[in-house]
Design a protein around this nucleic acid. Structure first.
Lengths: 349, 349
DNA sequence: TTGAAGAGTAAACACGTGTTTATGATCTTA
DNA sequence: TAAGATCATAAACACGTGTTTACTCTTCAA
């Protein structure tokens, strides 16, 4: 039924050369004269011949496959519609280098079946490497994989002193981003600034927290503990955090930094419910530049990150590492920029 | 570096049996007594042995891999954050049956490199089948694949009389859904109802158009051509369609059906800009129950579809077909239900 | 005691490619 | 003409598994 299976023996016969020659052409050996190469390539093209990947793998080549693991902690898709962008970046960049992407969703990092799926992908299907999105800072099975010698790329996870073996890391530059956010608010005249943070078991949660304190100190602004709200990187968490803030505190900040734009959306909803206007009664700034941020009412001021470039780089580094390139495995990503929209305004006007 | 590679020869040695027996145990042959099976399984478990997939494939087994192709026509991710849900459904359902999913993004169906990627996945990597999301109604390379004998699952694509060979189709029941939408508006007293439709090169575009006309006729409502607006399944299109409607028409409908929720979001934006209130000046109803619809202001009334179940079924049918099950290849999906929220209100109150 | 059935084996081949080795053929140049 | 370089080949092995075949050994029943 399927199209006639053609193999290297057939190609050799049709091109009037030996199978060795066909193999040498395909694998770009040096000692093949141009004329022979052309002749063989012609037959290959004419018959749309593609080497059988399984046979290549069995003969010692890699699978040229990367596992992409999206962790949906607590039922919340990490990054919401961002996931699609990240996925697309990885797939496109990988395929431009001849790699393809096996995608797997991890709903629950402690679910046995889920974890078995991950192991299967590494052991049975022998992907050359894996990329993890949405991982918590401590994820035992990732550490295991690294210890077992697999090449692993991780977004938003890093602790100094950890085994860096085959770990490639891409992170946001939260320090710079937070400096932009706090700095902008300060320039608008705000001094009473709070934050609704993300999960503290995620690197970006910890890092944003520290970066916020640092940025405030740099500007000589006082941090009020009651205005530093714990949270999680999704809409509902932002909603709840703001509701609690409004309930518990008499004195409110004039501006709030949000862990990301999803959190900010939740916050906007809570403010609206409470009858407070953004930005008139409260300035709000987010992180990430979510696809919807420009369309929200009010349009969300945010610190944008070039996710596409970040994922491309991570993919690039990972494939480089797989193919034996040397060099540091860890990379901080540092491009972030402020997008001014409607959700912040100068104080006292 | 990688964990010691163990193979069936080793397992046979350790279990004190022949390699044939190991193979017969793994492949569930009937004539293996329980005691022997147990003995072999113990060793397999103890050493975490998994057969090498490439070797299995070379020996004639399938790859147990499904290609998932997401088509992003015109730069718009089909279904926006829906894609993530669809992806997750397919991945989860497939892995529960021992299949894994190779994901590929098609940005441009006429881009040579993109199409080559698709072919690679079928020919070089020999996936057992493919699922296409966001395909237009006429997609030559999909027809080719079906003609070449590959098993293909498609969402939202079907024309009677087409070669059904290995085609599995899952569609929305637009007739029923549109009956719910128009019926609900009619019950609220609306008689002047318009529609902003989706792409007419997509099955759901054509089908929703026909279903709208039919539903209006059933209710004895007149269809005004000027209120039937062409469009496309994304936010920007909804925005533009409504802007045009407002510019071109003096007389307006009292209610609008939207091709999907993304389109509705765009419409809401346009109405807001024009100073019209929804639902006070215009009732709006969408399709799909997008994850954000409940949180919008106003919260969007919509016809919901159980996408997760739809994709699970499609995946199930496809795998069944791959594994040789017989039966009809085409299936209409029919569960849709009305979700009443804030964007519609009775006429004249 | 014979025969049959059941359990298990060793050996071989197939799948398609990469790679090595020994060898031969052709061409170039001194 | 001879030596060397260049090009190409056939043959063999490896990779790990599925499957078949011919065969041995045991056990059980007639």
């Amino acid at each position: 039924m399927k199209k006639t299976e053609i193999n290297s023996v057939e190609i050799a016969r049709l091109a009037g050369v030996s199978r060795s020659t066909v193999s040498r052409v395909i694998n770009n050996y040096a000692n093949v004269p141009p004329e022979t190469r052309r002749k063989v390539m012609e037959v290959i093209d004419a018959y749309h011949y593609v080497p059988n990947l399984s046979a290549q793998v069995l003969a010692g080549k890699g699978t040229r496959t990367i596992g992409l693991f999206v962790i949906e902690a607590g039922g919340h898709v990490s990054g919401d519609m961002l996931t699609n962008l990240l996925l697309a970046s990885v797939v496109e960049h990988a395929s431009s280098r001849g790699y393809y992407v096996l995608t797997y969703i991890i709903r629950n990092t402690s679910d046995a079946e889920n974890v078995r799926g991950v192991k299967d992908i590494f052991y049975q299907r022998r992907v050359d490497g894996g990329i993890f999105i949405g991982a918590a800072n401590e994820e035992p099975f990732i550490e295991e994989l690294i210890a077992e010698g697999f090449a692993v790329g991780v977004v938003d996870q890093y602790l100094p002193g950890r085994n860096e073996g085959n770990r490639i890391v891409a992170n946001f530059d939260n320090e710079h981003g937070m400096r932009l956010a706090v700095g902008y608010l300060h320039e608008l005249g705000h001094r009473d600034i709070g934050i609704v943070n993300g999960d503290m078991n995620r690197f970006s949660g910890i890092d944003k927290y520290n970066a916020f304190l640092a940025a405030m100190q740099e500007r000589g602004l006082e941090v009020r503990d009651a205005w530093v709200r714990p949270g999680s990187f999704h809409e509902e968490a932002g909603y709840l955090a703001v509701r609690e803030l409004l309930q518990e505190e008499q004195r409110l900040p004039t501006a709030l930094v949000m862990a990301n734009d999803s959190v900010a959306f939740g916050a906007l909803r809570a403010f609206q419910e409470a009858g407070m206007a953004v930005p008139d009664d409260m300035s709000v700034i987010g992180f990430d530049d979510h696809a919807l941020s420009a369309r929200y009412k009010p349009a969300l001021t945010t610190v944008a990150i070039d996710f596409r470039d970040m994922m491309s780089s991570l993919t690039d580094y990972l494939i480089g590492h797989i193919e034996g390139a040397e060099g540091t495995a860890v990379r901080y990503y540092s491009q972030s920029k402020l997008i001014r929209r409607e959700s912040c305004r100068p104080i006292g006007q």
